[in-house]
Amino acid sequence: MEDKMLERLTKCPLCKSGHFLNSEEIKDFAVSQESFIICNCTKCGLKFTNPRPAAEAIAPYYDFPEYFSHDDKAKNLTQFVYQKVRKYAVAKKVKHLNNLRPSKGKYLDYGCGTGELLTKAKEEGWKVKGIEPNGKARKLANSKLKGKVYESIDELPKEASFDIITLYHVLEHVHLLRKTVKKIIKHLKSKGYIIIAVPNPDSHDAIKYKEHWAGWDVPRHLYHFNHKSIEYFSDLFELQLISQMPMPFDSYYVSLLSEGYRNPKQSIISKYWKAIISGKKSNRSASKTVGNYSSNLFVFKKK
């Protein structure tokens, strides 16, 4: 990318240890075709892109049609399928919110995209707010939610507190990891829940596709959390892990993108068929292990 600014980390972004090793070299198949190094922290287990584009330089890496969470319109078959699955997933997520807190309450979605989840939650009786850094997505969200979506957490009123805060596939994008999580937790009520969904570099599909695994998504994904690093995350921020849930659709979607990266010349029928088989195998494998799904959802409470 032109005018690229890279920052090199000398400490792990999670545990601040200086003990980490180069682990993988991964290509940005989606945008720049550049390669990035992923380091593995020997203390907490976090994998992280290093060096990485600085916060003020990363926006061009998100500028591509296939970044679906920033758009409401389907421009091709994959986007159409993605949005149909997203609609189903939104309903499931709101059901989960309602089960955690049947009396409803105040809900913050950090990285809310175009606001589908917040809109559905509002319809079900939640008082909602959102955070979305991307200007295009935020504008779409606010057209539905009448100004309830902010660019950053610093714009929230200091006294704002929430019964549930969610970060669905967001934590891996946050440059100031520790500072941002601390700010988020300050807005969580004492008996509130924080829900985090992240890709899993130890999943069956990650191991299968290796450097072509779409879950790496460098340099947009700055971090990769396995079970060890999630445990460290929980202790560091004084959170109690209440439950862990699979996100079974992710294995199919990630496999679909990974197939395209591995063999871009194959037919669309072949790509979809292989993705279905791969996604099914990944979920079956995860069900027999400690939950190594393509993506996992973690529910925390304050200790």
Rank of each mutant, 00 (worst) to 15 (best):
residue 3 D to S: 03
residue 70 H to S: 04
residue 124 E to R: 13
residue 140 L to P: 03
residue 245 M to G: 04
residue 163 D to M: 14
residue 54 A to R: 06
residue 210 K to I: 05
residue 140 L to Q: 09
residue 4 K to H: 08
residue 21 L to E: 15
residue 260 G to I: 13
residue 282 S to T: 09
residue 174 V to K: 11
residue 83 Q to N: 14
residue 130 G to R: 13
residue 228 K to A: 06
residue 3 D to C: 04
residue 222 L to K: 12
residue 200 N to H: 06
residue 82 Y to V: 01
residue 290 V to C: 07
residue 256 L to H: 01
residue 286 A to W: 10
residue 228 K to S: 09
residue 233 F to L: 14
residue 233 F to S: 08
residue 141 A to W: 13
residue 282 S to I: 06
residue 157 P to R: 11
residue 186 K to Y: 11
residue 32 S to G: 11
residue 228 K to W: 05
residue 254 V to R: 08
residue 190 S to P: 05
residue 177 L to V: 04
residue 296 N to Q: 11
residue 187 H to R: 15
residue 217 D to P: 00
residue 239 L to S: 09
residue 51 P to D: 00
residue 8 R to D: 02
residue 37 I to A: 06
residue 125 G to A: 07
residue 38 I to L: 06
residue 242 I to F: 01
residue 23 S to M: 04
residue 32 S to C: 10
residue 99 N to S: 14
residue 243 S to T: 12
residue 68 F to V: 07
residue 135 G to N: 13
residue 33 Q to M: 09
residue 227 H to I: 13
residue 177 L to P: 03
residue 96 H to L: 15
residue 11 K to A: 09
residue 61 Y to P: 00
residue 48 F to Q: 00
residue 18 G to M: 08
residue 245 M to S: 06
residue 204 H to V: 02
residue 301 K to G: 05
residue 234 S to M: 10
residue 247 M to P: 01
residue 9 L to G: 03
residue 246 P to N: 01
residue 87 K to F: 12
residue 191 K to A: 01
residue 240 Q to V: 03
residue 16 K to S: 04
residue 277 I to C: 07
residue 229 S to C: 12
residue 196 I to A: 05
residue 276 I to A: 15
residue 133 P to K: 13
residue 162 F to W: 14
residue 276 I to G: 05
residue 215 G to I: 03
residue 77 L to M: 11
residue 274 K to D: 01
residue 6 L to M: 09
residue 230 I to H: 12
residue 73 K to Q: 12
residue 63 D to G: 02
residue 43 K to T: 01
residue 224 H to K: 14
residue 139 K to A: 14
residue 187 H to Q: 10
residue 276 I to T: 07
residue 175 H to G: 05
residue 174 V to G: 10
residue 68 F to S: 02
residue 266 Q to N: 06
residue 260 G to E: 13
residue 165 I to L: 14
residue 8 R to V: 01
residue 126 W to V: 08
residue 188 L to T: 05
residue 74 A to H: 03
residue 98 N to V: 13
residue 178 R to A: 09
residue 155 E to A: 15
residue 136 K to L: 06
residue 273 W to R: 13
residue 87 K to L: 08
residue 109 D to R: 10
residue 81 V to M: 12
residue 20 F to Q: 08
residue 129 K to H: 12
residue 50 N to Q: 00
residue 252 Y to C: 02
